[in-house]
Design a protein around this nucleic acid. Sequence first.
DNA 1: TTTAAAAAAGAAATCGATTACATTTTTGAA
DNA 2: TTCAAAAATGTAATCGATTTCTTTTTTAAA
Lengths: 338, 338
Amino acid sequence: MTKLRDVAKLAKVSTATVSRVLSNAGNVTEKTRRKVLAAMEDLNYQPNFLGRQLRKMETKTILVVVPDIANTFFSKVLRGIESVANKNGYQVLMGDSQNKSENESEYLNHLRYKQVDGVILLTARTTPHLVEELSDSYPIVLACEYLEGSNIPTVSIDNISSARKITSHLIKLGHHRIAHIAGPKNVILGRDRLKGFEQALAQNNLEIDQILIQEGDFTYESGYRLMKKLLALQNPPTAVFAANDEMAIGAIKAIKHCQLSVPEDIAVVGFDDIQMASIFEPELTTVAQPTFEIGSTAMALLLSLMKKEKLNMKQFVLEEQMIVRESCGAKSNVIDSS
Amino acid sequence: MTKLRDVAKLAKVSTATVSRVLSNAGNVTEKTRRKVLAAMEDLNYQPNFLGRQLRKMETKTILVVVPDIANTFFSKVLRGIESVANKNGYQVLMGDSQNKSENESEYLNHLRYKQVDGVILLTARTTPHLVEELSDSYPIVLACEYLEGSNIPTVSIDNISSARKITSHLIKLGHHRIAHIAGPKNVILGRDRLKGFEQALAQNNLEIDQILIQEGDFTYESGYRLMKKLLALQNPPTAVFAANDEMAIGAIKAIKHCQLSVPEDIAVVGFDDIQMASIFEPELTTVAQPTFEIGSTAMALLLSLMKKEKLNMKQFVLEEQMIVRESCGAKSNVIDSS
DNA sequence: TTTAAAAAAGAAATCGATTACATTTTTGAA
DNA sequence: TTCAAAAATGTAATCGATTTCTTTTTTAAA
């Protein structure tokens, strides 16, 4: 490994001068600059980042912690993050927490150890306490999920109101007995979407039947399993709101396996608008989050944080959009009523 | 930031002793050890990795470069990598090259700059030259893809033979006019699967009609678009082999949109066995790669490389498995003939 | 030509931990 | 008790680049 000092020696200048050439800092004659560049070329010199990072105490790298890389929803958020990061000279690294809070905390240590300059959490299952504590000293942004009653910079949509809207949509279509395949109770998204679901029922004076609320874990399998359970009820639901698209697809699959059809026998709606939502049959009615924008906003926020800028706004709630497709039966309804 | 020196001062020992306690190096009395640990506790000391890394010239981190995180196939390989990595005290970071070779090269620079100890490439679109060159000096393992005529450590399946097998399967089912929606020509996987396809035709004395070979880019959209093109032919194919599941699903969708059905009118098979392959309707006949094992083997290989162990075997070809489901029509055939 | 200001270049400290080597302390056999 | 070997601890160099502080050189106005 040739190092800066070797370049300096060959070019017959000091290490300081080489460093100045390296960082384009100015105050270097064109003549010396050429001499140094030639020496670098000669020795095929590559600066060692560890040295630079140690001195500058920065890595120009940020870490994104994802709960589950297999979930394509997050990949779009990542694209948003990367687009802003790269424009600003930052590298993006990903860590997959695999839905385990231990892994999440593990990744957060990268901050303590100065391995990355900042972190965007697409999941906040770690003890809120830890995130709060770290957030005091290091740049952290939460995206998609958030921490209740916390002041940590956050970018997300209003999950409660979106869930309320899509549930109301089912109610408007004439359903009274609506089930909810919920997300995990320990995840804020799960709790919020449940809350929105319950609010919609309450607003329409519908009773909340606890047996119709089943807690899944955002996977296809749990959607399938819980739907089977709901179908086995004496009085099964006529509509189901699943807390994400994967579970919704699982639910539809379960319904089909019972020789029933969607939306004719049971209407199903999901949440997230993953790619499969528009490919699967029936096409899924769901809530589309502005994924790319969530990512880019989060990264912009993180940049401000890293620059220690004064923030006049730390929490962003972006607009979501309900996308009506086939699985809720609205379209066939429209045709019927026309 | 409290540093090692502060701990040493508080514990009234030398920095060397603190370092020894930190690394459990032994040669420290239990008494001093306690004193040091107490001081660390007191100051809430967290070692700075940059310092350690610079000195030891290692980061205990490896980087996995993925061509497209949105493709769930890779997430399973990643799980295999992580499982072995974590057992050996390595952190896994991911970089998404977004199918661009510039990004790929960019990520490879992490090696030069000593930001990671090793790299696993799940994509090798960069100029072979660059990878070859880096591979001389740094630990690099290729997984899934490989470089022709290269000696770089690699873990993959035999794409040519798998493609040949699944094409032969279609031929055995009675198809003579089989199309291939290929992967990109500049990706070895694309070329290999095409080669296998052609071999199968040749072995069965079927003519290769170039119009039936369409080059896609592994995305759903390209599968859809190219299938539409194939359907518009005067003499369309009766079966299609798509080089991956996403394109296969796109193709099926296109067929359905033309009021035709799969497999009755046209049989379709894919490659990879992503989760959607068994959820989508009709369920996809495809080739299942041992994803987890590819990942774990690649990581094990990388570990040996990083330890500079002598390798008696550098290239691994793992067993794949053809999974026959509905989309090829074999099952309905079986029922017919029974 | 002189001289003050500006620009260029160099010397050496620094970032934080590790470690080779040196020194001190402890151990235990003679 | 003595003393050599082993164990514990300390000192200071080191990893590679950046940066502060000086010193030297250049520039340009007087």
